[in-house]
Computed example of a mutant assay.
Amino acid sequence: MPLYEFKCQSCGVFEEWRSLSQSSDPAVCPTCQQPGKRVISAPAVNLSSSLSLRHPRSEPELVKRETEPKPQKFQHQSCGRPWMLNH
């Protein structure tokens, strides 16, 4: 069951575990028993410790593109027979 946040007009934000079918129903504040509206918030995400993540504020790596063209693997034949390479 997911954990949803609700907001009471007098007490503030509170959380409640609910099934998906009850997600849009108003919840009763545990302090003052008044109905509260659901607050849409960002989901909590837990990443596995086996993942290696960079520091979120690290600089991106600078990648330089080679300016000189690489030599071609095959030479073009001028004899008009492209299927005969290096013969």
Rank of each mutant, 00 (worst) to 15 (best):
R54Y: 01
S78C: 02
P35W: 03
E68Q: 13
C32P: 00
V28G: 04
R54K: 07
P69V: 00
H55Y: 04
L3D: 14
K7D: 02
S49Q: 12
K70D: 11
K64P: 00
C8N: 08
H76D: 12
K7V: 15
Q75Y: 03
S21R: 13
H55G: 05
K73A: 13
P71R: 07
A27Y: 01
Q72E: 12
D25K: 14
Y4P: 05
A42K: 09
V63L: 04
L3P: 01
E15C: 04
V28L: 09
P56Q: 04
L51M: 07
P43E: 12
P82E: 10
C11S: 11
K73S: 10
G80Q: 08
H76R: 15
Q22W: 01
R81F: 03
L20R: 03
V28N: 05
L53D: 00
V63M: 05
Q22K: 15
E5L: 07
S41W: 01
Q72S: 13
S19D: 07
E59L: 05
S52C: 07
Q75A: 15
G12E: 02
G36H: 01
L47D: 02
K73D: 09
T67C: 07
S52F: 02
C79D: 15
Q77V: 08
E16F: 02
N46C: 09
S21T: 10
L51N: 00
